[in-house]
């Protein structure tokens, strides 16, 4: 259910219905931001059928990727050869 694509807010339009322009890697569209009242220009939102349903938590994204990248490293490398991001 449900394609959800991350895009970056480039413009906000306040009005009776909060909308904004969201850039998806060079393709832009007007998106309803009514359910993301705190989202600001530069934030990434997850968009489904022209509607932002979530704001991407960049710090959490970073933490998840780092944790996954460290998987199996103990087994692979007998030394503590960690690389910093």
């Amino acid at each position: 259910m449900c394609l959800g694509i991350p895009g970056r807010i480039t413009e906000l339009r306040d009005g009776p219905l909060r909308t904004g322009t969201v850039d998806f890697d060079g393709v832009t569209r007007t998106v309803c931001l009514a359910c993301e009242p705190d989202a600001q220009v530069g934030d990434y939102v997850l968009v489904h059928v022209g509607f932002a349903i979530s704001r991407i938590d960049e710090a959490e994204a970073h933490r998840t990727l780092e944790a996954l990248r460290e998987l199996g490293q103990l087994e692979e490398e007998l030394g503590p050869e960690r690389t910093d991001p």
Partner: peptide, 13 residues
């Protein structure tokens, strides 16, 4: 695939 074309394909499925 150009990035814009790839993006449009992601949006539209």
């Amino acid at each position: 695939v150009r990035r814009e074309v790839a993006a449009a394909c992601e949006i539209l499925g």
